[in-house]
């Protein structure tokens, strides 16, 4: 599929989701089970992207669960910053800085 077409479909579909209860159907109709399930989308998506990105590393994308893995160590440092400082700029900045330092080491 052409990438521009794919992006167009992503946009149209996302808009349809946001319109769903505002315009298309009555808002009383969202069942409790669906509401519960939707709450868990964000945590699921986020860790599902984070973990492979820090555990499969290098040009050959090999699995590396060790302290030698610079991305894993930098991500753990960033995680601690995010948890305690709750600041996006700091998390991204210190995480990138940690990776550069570890790579230079």
């Amino acid at each position: 599929m052409n990438l521009w077409l794919a992006v167009g479909l992503m946009g149209a579909g996302t808009y349809a989701i946001r319109l769903s209860m505002l315009v298309f159907v009555s808002h009383q109709r969202l069942p409790a089970a669906v509401r519960d399930a939707l709450q868990y989308v964000m945590p699921a998506v986020l860790l599902a992207i984070i973990l492979p990105a820090v555990l499969y590393v290098g040009d050959d994308a090999s699995f590396e669960l060790s302290i030698q893995n610079e991305r894993l160590v930098a991500a753990l440092i960033a995680g601690a910053v995010a948890w305690y400082a709750k600041n996006v700029w700091l998390t991204v900045g210190i995480g990138m800085g940690a990776l550069w330092l570890l790579q230079a080491w």
Partner: peptide, 20 residues
């Protein structure tokens, strides 16, 4: 492309909650 669209919509499905 089709799978990418599907994944993106799944990620954004939570907006249905906000919409409601």
């Amino acid at each position: 492309g089709g799978m990418i669209v599907l994944a993106v919509l799944l990620v954004n499905l939570r907006h249905m909650l906000y919409s409601a």
